[in-house]
Amino acid sequence: MLKSLSVIFLFLVVGEFVTYVFKIPIAGNIIGMVLIFLALKFKVIPLDMVKPASDKLLKYLVLFFVPYGVGLMVHFETIKEHWLSIGLAVLGSTILTLYLTAFLQEKLEKK
Protein backbone atom coordinates (compact mmCIF):
# COMPACT_ATOMS: atom_id res chain seq x y z
CA MET A 1 0.00 0.00 0.00
CA LEU A 2 2.76 2.44 0.98
CA LYS A 3 4.80 1.52 -2.09
CA SER A 4 1.87 1.93 -4.48
CA LEU A 5 0.89 5.23 -2.85
CA SER A 6 4.46 6.49 -3.28
CA VAL A 7 4.41 5.52 -6.96
CA ILE A 8 1.12 7.37 -7.50
CA PHE A 9 2.49 10.49 -5.82
CA LEU A 10 5.68 10.12 -7.87
CA PHE A 11 3.61 10.30 -11.08
CA LEU A 12 1.70 13.24 -9.63
CA VAL A 13 4.92 15.13 -8.88
CA VAL A 14 6.39 14.29 -12.29
CA GLY A 15 3.14 15.49 -13.92
CA GLU A 16 3.27 18.77 -12.00
CA PHE A 17 6.94 19.14 -12.95
CA VAL A 18 6.23 18.58 -16.66
CA THR A 19 3.44 21.19 -16.57
CA TYR A 20 5.72 23.59 -14.70
CA VAL A 21 8.76 23.19 -16.95
CA PHE A 22 7.04 23.05 -20.35
CA LYS A 23 4.24 25.49 -19.43
CA ILE A 24 1.59 23.20 -20.96
CA PRO A 25 -2.01 24.38 -20.40
CA ILE A 26 -2.92 20.92 -18.96
CA ALA A 27 -3.14 20.27 -15.20
CA GLY A 28 -0.24 18.38 -13.63
CA ASN A 29 -2.37 15.53 -12.31
CA ILE A 30 -3.87 14.99 -15.79
CA ILE A 31 -0.32 14.66 -17.17
CA GLY A 32 0.38 12.25 -14.27
CA MET A 33 -2.73 10.26 -15.26
CA VAL A 34 -1.64 10.01 -18.90
CA LEU A 35 1.95 9.09 -17.90
CA ILE A 36 0.87 6.31 -15.51
CA PHE A 37 -1.48 4.98 -18.21
CA LEU A 38 1.36 4.91 -20.74
CA ALA A 39 3.78 3.39 -18.20
CA LEU A 40 1.34 0.52 -17.61
CA LYS A 41 0.54 0.13 -21.30
CA PHE A 42 4.20 -0.17 -22.28
CA LYS A 43 4.99 -2.39 -19.29
CA VAL A 44 7.36 0.11 -17.69
CA ILE A 45 5.69 -0.67 -14.36
CA PRO A 46 3.58 -3.73 -13.41
CA LEU A 47 -0.09 -3.26 -12.48
CA ASP A 48 0.30 -4.59 -8.90
CA MET A 49 2.89 -1.90 -8.24
CA VAL A 50 0.12 0.74 -8.23
CA LYS A 51 -3.17 -1.13 -7.88
CA PRO A 52 -3.55 -1.27 -4.04
CA ALA A 53 -3.41 2.50 -3.57
CA SER A 54 -5.25 3.37 -6.78
CA ASP A 55 -8.18 1.10 -5.88
CA LYS A 56 -8.44 2.72 -2.44
CA LEU A 57 -8.31 6.24 -3.88
CA LEU A 58 -10.92 5.45 -6.52
CA LYS A 59 -13.22 3.90 -3.93
CA TYR A 60 -13.50 7.26 -2.17
CA LEU A 61 -13.09 9.43 -5.27
CA VAL A 62 -16.62 10.84 -5.02
CA LEU A 63 -15.99 12.07 -1.47
CA PHE A 64 -13.00 14.11 -2.61
CA PHE A 65 -14.99 16.39 -4.86
CA VAL A 66 -17.79 17.12 -2.39
CA PRO A 67 -16.07 20.40 -1.32
CA TYR A 68 -16.10 21.63 -4.95
CA GLY A 69 -19.81 20.88 -5.14
CA VAL A 70 -20.45 22.75 -1.89
CA GLY A 71 -18.47 25.67 -3.37
CA LEU A 72 -21.36 26.08 -5.79
CA MET A 73 -23.13 28.05 -3.01
CA VAL A 74 -20.74 30.95 -3.65
CA HIS A 75 -21.89 31.12 -7.28
CA PHE A 76 -25.66 31.09 -6.85
CA GLU A 77 -25.97 34.59 -8.32
CA THR A 78 -24.09 33.68 -11.52
CA ILE A 79 -26.20 30.56 -11.98
CA LYS A 80 -29.43 32.43 -11.27
CA GLU A 81 -28.58 35.15 -13.74
CA HIS A 82 -27.69 32.77 -16.58
CA TRP A 83 -29.80 29.70 -15.79
CA LEU A 84 -31.61 29.71 -19.13
CA SER A 85 -28.51 29.82 -21.34
CA ILE A 86 -26.74 27.28 -19.09
CA GLY A 87 -29.75 24.97 -19.17
CA LEU A 88 -30.28 25.15 -22.93
CA ALA A 89 -26.57 24.85 -23.76
CA VAL A 90 -26.09 21.85 -21.48
CA LEU A 91 -29.30 20.18 -22.69
CA GLY A 92 -28.61 20.76 -26.39
CA SER A 93 -24.98 19.77 -26.19
CA THR A 94 -25.68 16.63 -24.12
CA ILE A 95 -28.41 15.37 -26.46
CA LEU A 96 -26.19 16.02 -29.49
CA THR A 97 -23.29 14.16 -27.85
CA LEU A 98 -25.51 11.21 -26.91
CA TYR A 99 -26.96 10.89 -30.40
CA LEU A 100 -23.77 11.48 -32.40
CA THR A 101 -21.81 8.96 -30.34
CA ALA A 102 -24.52 6.29 -30.49
CA PHE A 103 -25.15 6.88 -34.21
CA LEU A 104 -21.46 6.53 -35.11
CA GLN A 105 -20.94 3.51 -32.89
CA GLU A 106 -23.99 1.75 -34.37
CA LYS A 107 -22.85 2.49 -37.95
CA LEU A 108 -19.18 1.59 -37.41
CA GLU A 109 -19.65 -1.59 -35.38
CA LYS A 110 -21.76 -3.19 -38.14
CA LYS A 111 -18.90 -3.12 -40.62
Partner: peptide, 17 residues
Amino acid sequence: LSFFLGPSVVALGVLFY
Protein backbone atom coordinates in the same frame (compact mmCIF):
# COMPACT_ATOMS: atom_id res chain seq x y z
CA LEU B 1 -10.65 16.14 1.38
CA SER B 2 -10.27 17.85 -2.00
CA PHE B 3 -6.48 17.54 -1.69
CA PHE B 4 -6.87 13.85 -2.48
CA LEU B 5 -8.42 14.68 -5.84
CA GLY B 6 -4.86 15.15 -7.14
CA PRO B 7 -3.61 11.58 -6.58
CA SER B 8 -7.10 10.21 -7.40
CA VAL B 9 -6.94 11.65 -10.91
CA VAL B 10 -3.59 9.85 -11.35
CA ALA B 11 -5.28 6.68 -10.06
CA LEU B 12 -7.88 7.09 -12.84
CA GLY B 13 -5.04 6.43 -15.30
CA VAL B 14 -4.64 3.00 -13.69
CA LEU B 15 -8.36 2.33 -14.00
CA PHE B 16 -8.33 3.38 -17.67
CA TYR B 17 -5.50 0.96 -18.36
